[in-house]
């Protein structure tokens, strides 16, 4: 069933209450949100199977804490989109501002444009696919999950990374501490192909990517350093 809500008249709280309730209803509902106007915390805390399309640009923390829901933003997203997402899918047709997908535990975040700095900071299991490029300090302290970038990556990619696999097709301005290039094995090609397909990134050759990950030098205790304690 198709529903609409207009933020020219409805409040953010009314929107989120309606969407959270809709996410608990079967059969699955389809919602369109008009006039987001760069508003904050739109479509947050959804916990169930619902399709939401936000028609326009959103501000801070859109689709935060998402579980199972499928949220599409037709414009750009402000800082912290899909922060702490647990599952489901968030898709941004435009660009995303800083810390997209921060601390997210699961699900798929797709940015069809580019994402700015700190994309996937402290990611904990989410898959992030960016059709364009990402800014500096992306995947900082990444713990788990996959970050795929079809364009370029900014400075200090994967700084202090624990675990997480990063795939970049273009240039990497610089790698952060303990982030190193690693071989692209068949298993990685397979998962990359699957992620690109899921994200609708067509015409992208898996073989053009390089893989980056943790050298595991920072977070394992080294006996040579015992005297320092």
């Amino acid at each position: 069933m198709s529903h609409t809500i207009d933020l020219a008249t409805a409040t953010t709280r009314e929107l989120n209450s309606a969407l959270q309730a809709a996410s608990k209803v079967t059969p699955k509902q389809n919602w369109t949100v008009h006039n987001p106007g760069g508003g904050h915390t739109l479509a947050v805390g959804l916990d169930g199977d619902v399709d939401v399309t936000i028609d326009g640009h959103v501000g801070y923390y859109c689709a935060g804490m998402n579980q199972r829901a499928n949220v599409t933003i037709t414009g750009n997203a402000g800082p912290g989109v899909a922060e702490n997402m647990m599952s489901g899918q968030v898709r941004i047709k435009g660009n995303a501002s800083q810390y997209a997908g921060a601390t997210a535990h699961g699900g798929l975040l797709v940015v069809e444009g580019s994402a700015s700095s700190r994309c996937g900071i402290s990611m904990k299991g989410v898959d992030i696919v960016v059709h364009g490029s990402i800014g500096h300090m992306s995947a900082f302290m990444a713990q788990s999950g996959r970050l795929v970038v079809c364009g370029d990556a900014g400075d200090a990619l994967g700084d202090s990374i624990y675990e997480a696999r990063i795939y970049v097709r273009g240039e990497v301005a610089s790698l952060g501490a303990d982030c190193v290039e690693q071989p692209l094995e068949q298993i990685h090609r397979d998962e990359l192909a699957q992620l690109l397909t899921n994200a609708g990134a067509v015409g992208v050759d898996v073989g053009d990517f390089r893989r980056y990950g943790s050298a595991r030098e920072l977070y394992h205790f080294k006996v040579d350093n015992a005297h320092a304690y």
Partner: peptide, 22 residues
């Protein structure tokens, strides 16, 4: 600082929009 301050400008929805680089 945020897009919402621009949203009411005439033609904002179709304006060229970008974040200034660091």
């Amino acid at each position: 600082s945020e897009y919402r301050a621009l949203a009411g400008l005439p033609g904002a929805a179709s304006a060229r929009l970008w974040e200034p680089e660091p």
